[in-house]
Structure formats: C-alpha cells, structure tokens
C-alpha cells in the first residue's frame, strides 16, 4: 500500500483498544475453559491451590489476557522491522510449543531426516523443476493458440485449459497413470506424475501468459507491422520478449505452488517427500514425526524459492525500469 505521511496515534497505545483486546481474550479464554487446557497445566504451580475449576479458569484467562495485551503494547513501540521480527519469533515459538506438545521422538526424526532429504526433497525438487519447464512450453503454446485467429487452435487450447483447470489434479494423476496403460503404453510413476503436473500447471499458466501477451501495448504490434515484420517475427522478437518480464514473477509463484502440489504424485508411488512422510513412520507409528518433518522441509524449500523469486523480480525490473 502507498503510505500517507500523516502520523496517527498508535492503536497499541490506546487504553480503549488495549482494554477491549484484554476483554476479548479474557472472554474467549473463559468460554473455552482455559483452566482445563494444557495452558492451565503450565500455570499449575500458581493456580493449583485454587481448587474450584471455575476460579482456576478465571485465573488462567486473566493471566493470558494481561500477558497478551502487555505483549502487543510493548511490541507496538518498536519500529516496523522490529515488530515484524518480534511477532515472527513469537509465532515460531508458539509453533514449536504446539509441536512439542505432541511428545515427538526427535531421535526418530534424526534417523530419518537424512533419507527424507536425499531421496524425498531431491525427487520433489526435480519432479517440480521438470514439470515447470514443460508447463512453460504448454503455456506458451496454449496462450498463443488461444490468441490466434485459428479456430482449431482456439478450440484445442480452450478445451485443454478448461479440462485441466476444471478437474482436480489428483484425478488427473490417476487418469494418466491408470488410463494411458489402457492404450497399450505403460508409463512409470515419475513420467506420469510429471505429465499430470505439467499439463495442469500449463493450463493455469496459459492464462498468465495470455495476460502477459495482451498487456503489451497495441503500438508495439503496429510498429512491427509498419516495419513489415511477419506475424511470427512480431510475436517471437517483439511481443514475447517483452511479456516475459510480466510472466516470470507469477511463474515463480506457480513453481512454489507446484512444489507442494507435487505431493499428490505420492499416490502413485513416486518416492518424493510426501510419500516418504507417509511410509517412513508407519512401522513404528511415528506418523506425526514424519509429517512434521515433511512440513518443515516443504516450508524451508518454499522459503528459499521465495527469496530466489524476489531476487529475480528485482533483476527483471532493473533491466527495464
């Protein structure tokens, strides 16, 4: 958003806001029976002496409300960057407490995490990378076909995007893996998974490419025509190179989304991250350990890719102001 230069009084300094927040937290904690929850256990040394359950809940709720309100009041005094770091840290800590309350076996995670990275993360990344490359080609073909004056091309492309955007990816994966062998070609799990992912994401990206192409001003087409360029040269030399600037950033976004959707190909037995998360913990009933490990690995991957994407975006903008 475009910030105004006006300095408004901080909301987190206003007694009315702080009081209201405290009241809401207190009420919510009371209604949810905070005294009986794990939080009650944490405060047990203090509140245990209060034998009446209702009194215990009130005490816990009051503590919670005061702690929360004091917290936002204090963080509110920091500059923006400090606020972001402080809140991130707090949310992360809460997350860790939440995970820790599952009573996880960290030694079990320790024995499996290496394999989950070398086999799972690696497979996830390369399946996604190959798929996004194919999806890029499908999107290029789909968007130019949709914008062409050729009825066949328009029909095939719009049928393609309609089907692959309209059907759940999971069903597409099954249809390709189980359906193509009916035609007499046996496909392995990884090629089938790559095919499904790239066709599906190609369909989404067709729309991104189409918007990118249509955003190029009419004058660029007219100048190309007036110079006598053929339609093919106009597209390949003038229009597409310029639309790439608008297409690359959302494509990065799609890649991050695909990284997570690639977990769906685990259903056909590709040994990627999700498949390992489901199978590695099974023998010892350590499902949560493996799921949480996979969640953290996916998150870390996306985090790295987000950084890469932000960097790319900056570079593309610098080249063309």
């Amino acid at each position: 958003m475009y910030q105004d230069n006006v300095i408004r009084p901080r909301m987190t300094d206003s007694p009315a806001f702080l009081g209201g927040t405290a009241a809401v937290v207190f009420a919510a904690a009371c209604l949810s029976g905070a005294g009986q929850s794990g939080l009650g256990g944490l405060l047990a040394p203090v509140v245990n002496s209060l034998s009446a359950p209702a009194l215990r809940t009130v005490a816990v709720a009051l503590t919670l409300a005061l702690a929360f309100t004091a917290n936002i009041h204090l963080i509110g005094k920091l500059p923006l960057r400090g606020q972001v770091i402080a809140v991130w840290t707090e949310l992360l800590l809460l997350f860790l407490v939440f995970f820790d309350s599952f009573d996880l076996s960290y030694s079990f995670i320790g024995t499996k995490v290496g394999f989950m990275i070398t086999q799972g993360v690696l497979t996830t990344v390369y399946v996604s990378a190959i798929s996004i490359a194919f999806a890029f080609v499908f999107a290029l073909l789909g968007s130019t076909a949709k914008l062409s004056g050729n009825g066949f091309a328009v029909a095939v492309a719009s049928f393609y995007t309609s089907f692959f955007r309209g059907v759940p990816l999971l069903i597409q994966i099954y249809l390709i893996y189980l359906g193509i062998p009916q035609l007499g070609y046996v496909v392995d799990a990884i090629p089938a998974g790559v095919m499904a992912l790239s066709l599906c994401y190609g369909a989404y990206m067709t729309e991104i490419f189409r918007a990118g192409i249509m955003s190029i001003p009419k004058g660029q087409w007219e100048a190309s025509r007036a110079l006598g360029l053929t339609p093919w040269h106009t597209l390949s030399r003038i229009i597409l190179p310029q639309s790439m600037r608008l297409i690359i950033p959302p494509t990065g976004n799609q890649f991050i989304a695909m990284l997570k959707d690639s977990s769906l190909v685990s259903v056909i037995g590709v040994w990627e991250l999700m498949f390992l998360a489901r199978t590695q913990g099974r023998a010892e009933f350590r499902h949560l350990e493996m799921l949480i490990t996979a969640a953290v690995l996916y998150w870390a991957l996306s985090f790295v890719l987000e950084r890469v994407q932000a960097h790319l975006e900056k570079r593309f903008n610098r080249a063309h102001r």
Binding site: G219, Q220, A226, L227, I238, Q242, H320
Partner: peptide, 12 residues
C-alpha cells in the same frame, strides 16, 4: 515507413 505519435520503439 511510419512514425507514430507515441514513438512505439521496442523497449527491450
């Protein structure tokens, strides 16, 4: 040949 009001040079 043609020259346009908005120049229409190829910015890339």
């Amino acid at each position: 040949g043609m020259v346009f009001q908005q120049f229409n040079l190829f910015p890339h």
